[in-house]
């Protein structure tokens, strides 16, 4: 699998302004040095709790936000420093699906206009060809063709998400960033959209960056999963290894916190973390997770653990594995 997208040391800091002269009084370290790659036809799931920076990663790599540092390469070409005009050809190759289909569709445009708009922006085809293309996209996304003349408020949440998907597909992109694309939907509708996304991926060899907080959904749709905590990736591997052998204590806690819809799940032993996610304005020194970590050692408070390949293909940033791989994590040293 050749890498379609390569991200290296990506940082996005937001300055905090204060006072009459908007003096910069601090930084929100939303994304603080994130590296990963996505192959063609591959889904990388990005999970973490609110405020961990997962959505900011998605937006920054589409350059909807200007990265503070790091490089973003698409098909081997560096797009980090490109301006709006130079970005245009790359925009065709990278699209986004948003969480809230209510907020992301223009209420004054019909569904057909919404789906066809990217074709107009990029000057593709004649009006007749565009109409045909829109009809094809509607069919592929599971919408009735006559729905093209309806406005967004006339659709249900699931159908609106299908409109968002049809629009994202309009330019035949190679990469789609989905920012919590199914979180706002009811479970029975969620399954329809997940299935649609997987079918489209197989059909068009799409690459996905699937950003979500629901681990079960991410494990289902992804090939590999990256876990983020407070602006950094703490673990990244194929989904099976992540589930069966988490190497980071945060991943372990996250997996055990997910409720399982089975009768046998009752009374299951779990790791319950104490406290909340710290603020990304003044993240704790050393390992960001040390204050909530059940296995924290003195050095975790001072030394930042690097994300390294602990086992081939399995990356983790935790001092527990410094003297060799330690599995399970709870075992006494």
């Amino acid at each position: 699998m050749t890498a379609l997208l390569e991200v290296e040391g990506l940082k996005k800091h937001f300055p905090i302004h204060k006072g009459v002269f908007s003096k910069v009084s601090g930084q929100v370290y939303a994304v603080d040095g994130v590296s990963f790659s996505i192959g063609r036809g591959e889904t990388l799931g990005l999970v973490g709790e609110s405020g961990c920076g997962k959505s900011t990663v998605g937006r920054t790599l589409l350059k909807l936000l200007e990265p503070t540092d790091g490089t973003i390469k698409v098909g081997g070409e560096d797009i980090t420093g490109l301006g709006a005009q130079a970005m245009l050809p790359y925009r065709r190759r990278m699209q986004m699906i948003y969480q809230d289909p209510y907020a992301s569709l223009n209420p004054r445009m019909t569904a057909g206009e919404i789906v066809g708009e990217p074709l107009i922006v990029h000057n593709i085809g004649t009006p007749a060809e565009r109409r045909e293309r829109v009809a094809g996209l509607f069919e592929r996304a599971g919408l009735r063709p006559e729905a093209a003349n309806s406005y967004p408020h006339e659709f249900s949440g699931g159908q609106r998400q299908r409109i968002g998907i049809a629009r994202a597909l309009a330019l035949n992109p190679e990469l789609i960033v989905g920012d919590e694309p199914v979180s706002a939907l009811d479970v029975s509708i969620q399954a329809q959209i997940i299935n649609l996304l997987m079918e489209l991926q197989d059909e068009f060899q799409l690459s996905y960056l699937f950003v979500a907080h629901d681990l079960a959904v991410v494990e289902h749709i992804s090939h590999r999963v990256a876990v983020m905590y407070l602006g950094r990736i703490v673990e990244m591997t194929d989904k099976r290894s992540l589930f069966e052998m988490p190497l980071h204590p945060y991943t372990e806690a996250l997996l055990s916190a997910v409720p399982i819809p089975k009768s046998s799940a009752r009374g299951r032993k779990r790791v319950i973390l104490t406290g909340d996610v710290p603020s990304p304005i003044n993240p704790p020194p050393g390992c960001h997770f040390h204050a909530r970590c059940p296995y924290a050692m003195p050095r975790c408070k001072t030394d930042v653990p690097a994300l390294r390949e602990v086992i081939p293909g399995h990356f983790a940033s935790c001092h527990l594995h410094d003297g060799g791989v330690k599995v399970p994590l709870g075992a006494a040293a």
Binding site: A191, I194, M198, A216, F243, I260
Partner: peptide, 23 residues
């Protein structure tokens, strides 16, 4: 409803061919 929810354990083990969820 129960069939349409991805289960964490089974989702993780279907690494070769991702199963379709029951809609």
């Amino acid at each position: 409803l129960l069939g349409s929810i991805p289960h964490l354990d089974t989702a993780a083990r279907t690494d070769t061919k991702r199963a379709k969820l029951n809609e």
